[in-house]
């Protein structure tokens, strides 16, 4: 079917040209390199056996690790933080899997 080729001729340049313009809402254009927004995490609602929850904890711990000393306290809601689940000595152990042992 030659049609496929015709369609490809149209579709491929169309995609290449428009790939940067996701939508007309300008808010969507400024999404580059956003930081994870960990302030909205509600630990009480999280099932720590769920890979999604574990992955989110990992992401946020890594982020907290990186910005140690320059935490933005204004964006944090301390009442929602569960300190019993946080490990203080994370930086000593390089092995990622050590973070998996959140037991309830």
């Amino acid at each position: 079917m030659k049609n496929f080729r015709k369609v490809a001729f149209i579709v491929i340049p169309a995609i290449t040209l428009s790939i940067s313009a996701t939508a007309h809402d300008p808010k969507l254009h400024v999404k580059k390199a956003e930081k994870a927004d960990c302030s909205k995490m509600d630990h009480s609602k999280m099932d720590m056996k769920d890979p999604v929850a574990i992955a989110m904890m990992k992401k946020c711990m890594k982020q907290a690790e990186k910005s140690k000393g320059k935490m933005d306290h204004s964006k944090m809601d301390h009442s929602k933080m569960d300190h019993s689940k946080m490990k203080k000595d994370e930086h000593k152990t390089k092995k990622k899997d050590d973070q998996n042992e959140h037991n309830h």
């Binding site: 956003e34 994870a36 927004d37 909205k40 995490m41 999604v52 989110m56």
Partner: peptide, 14 residues
Amino acid sequence: TLTPEQYQVLTAIE
């Protein structure tokens, strides 16, 4: 199954 908040955290670059 993801909420917008979960999606944001999982997909953010850092």
